[in-house]
Amino acid sequence: MTHTGRLLSIQTGKVRPLRVGERTLMSAIGKSPIDGAVTVGPLGLAGDEQADLSVHGGLSKAVYALPSEHLAWWQQQRQARGVTLFEETLAPGYLGENLSLQGLLEHEVFIGDLLQFEEVTLRVTQPREPCSKFNAVMGYAQAAKDMVQSSRSGFYLAVDVAGLLRAGEPFELLPGPRATSIAQALGHKARKHLS
């Protein structure tokens, strides 16, 4: 059985100051949608930046993908904690994702699987591990914990075949070894932090 999905939108970001508690740190967590085709190379999307290359970017974390289905849930978490009084929907890129995907959730994708687009092939490497910058952007201190415990983290991708990506294009999931799903890897991290 073939698993397919769609790339709804593509986002990139520039490094800029971000207030985290009493400190100001540099971050490129806020991403904005790109119109047209985007070049994808071994280190990610053309025009995308990372502030801390020890935890973001590089060959194994070149691109960050998030299921678009999660944005409504994240908006509800913020509203439940009084972060926002408005009913606005979180825009793609708000959580730092480069790719907003539709039709592929963390329990369906495994480390080593490939996402085959028209020109580009991306390999799943690991779940996102959120940090204090994520908490700051979301506006509440438990956001990173919620990401891990809910398995709504998205995943990092390495670029196996470079080329052009376009918003709206379909992709096919090509199974890898299928040993550990992204949800299972997150569950392992959650248990490790609880013990």
Rank of each mutant, 00 (worst) to 15 (best):
T24D: 15
T39D: 06
A185R: 11
F110C: 06
N98V: 03
L164S: 12
P92L: 05
M138P: 05
P177T: 06
C131Q: 06
T12W: 08
G187M: 12
L186P: 11
L101N: 06
A46L: 11
V148I: 15
L8M: 04
H188L: 15
E119I: 03
L115R: 15
E88L: 07
V55I: 14
K145C: 05
F117C: 03
L25R: 11
V38F: 01
G21M: 03
A62G: 11
F134A: 05
V83M: 00
R191N: 08
Q116W: 03
R166V: 04
L45P: 00
D48K: 14
Q50F: 02
V120N: 01
L53W: 14
A136G: 12
G103V: 08
A179V: 12
T84Y: 00
I29E: 00
V20G: 12
T180G: 03
F110K: 01
L105V: 14
G154S: 13
A190D: 15
F134S: 02
T39I: 09
T24N: 15
S150R: 13
L85I: 05
G41M: 03
D35S: 12
G41K: 07
G41P: 01
R16I: 04
G168Q: 10
D52E: 09
L71F: 06
S27M: 09
Q76C: 01
G36A: 13
G41F: 00
I10G: 02
K192M: 11
G44C: 05
L173I: 08
A185V: 05
L59V: 08
L85T: 12
G93A: 07
E119N: 14
A80V: 02
P67C: 06
T121Q: 08
R191K: 09
G154V: 08
L18K: 11
H3K: 15
T125K: 02
S195G: 14
E108L: 13
L186E: 06
A80T: 06
A190T: 13
E129H: 11
S9R: 10
I29A: 13
H70F: 11
L53P: 13
R128F: 00
G36E: 10
S68D: 12
L115H: 12
S54P: 03
D146F: 01
E106T: 12
T39Y: 02
G21Y: 02
D52V: 10
G112F: 02
A65C: 08
F155W: 14
D52A: 07
E169A: 00
L85P: 10
T121E: 04
C131M: 11
K61C: 05
G96H: 05
P127M: 02
A91M: 03
P130C: 09
A46W: 06
G168H: 09
S54A: 14
R6G: 05
L8K: 05
D113A: 10
I34W: 00
V148W: 11
S150D: 09
E87D: 10
G44A: 08
I29K: 01
F86A: 10
S60E: 14
L90I: 04
S54L: 12
Q79Y: 02
D48L: 12
S32F: 04
P127T: 08
A179D: 15
P67Q: 06
I10A: 06
E108T: 03
F171T: 02
T89I: 04
A141P: 08
T84F: 00
F117K: 02
C131V: 08
